[in-house]
């Protein structure tokens, strides 16, 4: 029923741990999308998945393919690099849009003390 690549034991242990860990961190981040109360708080949640969650799953992929093809496979770094560089851009644009919309509706949600 389940399918798995044919890896040596050390690689299999590492890959299994990293995949599970990354998926859990990513799930926790997305659960935060549901649990946190205001929009600005919710914006923090998905960054868990784009930092540690993604890094550990991509590391698992690197280890897996390096062991399978018995050479060093590192092109997953490009995905990591791309997402790390682009997440700030999307979040900045989104936060500016949200600030603008709140201000134009006269909803000063600036939860200041």
């Amino acid at each position: 029923m389940t399918q798995a690549p044919d890896l040596p034991l050390w690689a299999a242990l590492l890959v299994a741990f990293l995949v599970l860990f990354g998926a859990s961190v990513s799930l926790i981040g997305t659960v935060g999308l549901l649990r946190l109360k205001t929009f600005y708080e919710r914006m923090h949640a998905p960054t868990l998945g784009t930092t540690v969650g993604m890094a550990s799953i991509l590391l698992a992929s690197m280890i897996c393919f390096s062991a399978l093809q018995s050479r060093i496979v590192i092109h997953e770094i490009l995905i990591e690099l791309f997402v790390t560089l682009t997440t700030p851009v999307t979040l900045m644009l989104l936060s500016r849009a949200a600030l603008y919309r709140d201000r134009s509706e006269g909803r000063e949600r600036r939860d200041k003390p």
């Binding site: 890896l7 034991l9 299999a12 741990f17 599970l20 998926a23 990513s26 799930l27």
Partner: peptide
């Protein structure tokens, strides 16, 4: 010995 790897990948996919 690889059964645990298959299962953990499947569980990770369910979590995602």
């Amino acid at each position: 010995s690889m059964a645990f790897l298959g299962w953990s990948i499947t569980i990770a996919q369910m979590l995602l």
